[in-house]
Amino acid sequence: MLVLTRRANQSIMIGADIVVTVLEVRGDQVRIGIDAPRSVSVHREEVFRELEASNRAAASPSFGALEGLTALRPPKHDSGGGPLP
């Protein structure tokens, strides 16, 4: 891992169009600003990892599991929508 020391209001460039700026350092928290093209998605790592794990757990359920699922119906709600298009 590349390690750089920066102060508040100093930045790091990643490639030509991603700029990561240290905005504020207070105690054990650091506020960071990120300028990146729209095609680059930026996430808090722990949230992204949680989604990865959830997607992997949900991926390609077995045929047997799906059979039971089709019998499952949502509870009755006044505002419930219709079935999927």
Partner: peptide, 12 residues
């Protein structure tokens, strides 16, 4: 593949 649902049905 993923099973998906309309969230409004289960979580109004």
């Amino acid at each position: 593949e993923f099973v998906v649902t309309h969230p409004g049905l289960f979580f109004p």
